[in-house]
Nucleic acid binder design. Structure first.
Lengths: 155, 155
DNA sequence: ACATTATAGTATGCGCGCTTATTATAAGCG
DNA sequence: CGCTTATAATAAGCGCGCATACTATAATGT
């Protein structure tokens, strides 16, 4: 009966879902960094580029709108979009209706790169979750429940 | 039959396990930041402090050892441990056997803080995964499978 | 003993995710 | 119309999670 050094309910970090989540997320980020390396973009850049490509066909996108669509905070969105602009993948022009805003459009180079990168990302994703095999569906359902449970109300 | 802007297999990001993992991990980080705010330490600082407290009772810890135990890379471990030292929570003395290494010990203040913070972290963790209720066990099992599948061999 | 290889720790630098604060302008309201 | 409130974008700054490269020393093999 030795006195434990910490009053934890767990016998170690390996059982903590949060600790595991953190480790897995880091591993996934590493995997994606490698997968996107040939395209010379980062994960966040990919997310915004893909989001802009996807939704840009339907509406005039502002940075604020892209921020909500992607889940990337407005500050990071601003910074990443400027990087994408510097790389010639998007354009940020003054919004015709609202001078505070920027209208974001994807260039041809951006669309082409998005089309290639999305395949690489989905392949990397599939490879990463492959150990779960068909249970991946269940994982996605759990993830969706968690996301729903932690929605950041935009109010 | 409109031509989709991207050749994705998914109808949107909401079904991608990787995208969901990323969002959830960010949400969890936010939650932990808030939970640890009263203690004025970050998540990484907590992980290293708790790890050092836990294992420091059994062995002489070096930064390299703490790095493997915590899963935090050596560079970040170095930086975070210096922050913990500056806060008076640990001490970094020259290792008695190996002059390259530092021997890490937790101060009384560090142990006291770890004891309190670990409760806050576990509460935050429980609250975060509460939407899954008893399915959390299953999630942990899946997480462990993923971790096992992406082990970074220390070879 | 010596040469090779491995290891402990750190400097530097990058991008993300965030907080706080600021500027400019839109939108709502009496 | 004028006032208040909300919103779009950004500056500055912090800590993490890396990658790369370096110094110093241990460990190993012959």
């Amino acid at each position: 009966m030795t006195k434990p050094p910490l009053p934890t309910r767990l016998s170690g970090p390996a059982e903590s879902p949060g600790f595991l989540l953190w480790k897995i997320s880091n591993a996934w980020q590493r995997r994606l960094r490698v997968a996107l390396q040939p395209y010379e973009i980062t994960h966040s850049q990919f997310v915004l580029l893909a989001t802009a490509t996807w939704f840009g066909a339907e509406e005039t996108l502002t940075q604020a709108r892209l921020s909500q669509l992607s889940g990337i905070d407005p500050m990071t969105t601003s910074q990443v979009l400027r990087a994408l602009e510097a790389a010639g993948l998007i354009e940020r022009i003054d919004h015709p209706q609202d001078p505070r805003a920027k209208a974001i459009t994807v260039t041809k180079a951006g669309r082409d790169l998005a089309r290639k990168a999305v395949v690489a990302v989905e392949d990397a994703d599939a490879a990463f979750f492959e150990p779960l095999a068909s249970d991946t569906k269940r994982l996605v359902a759990m993830f969706q429940a968690l996301v729903a449970g932690h929605e950041v109300d935009p109010k």
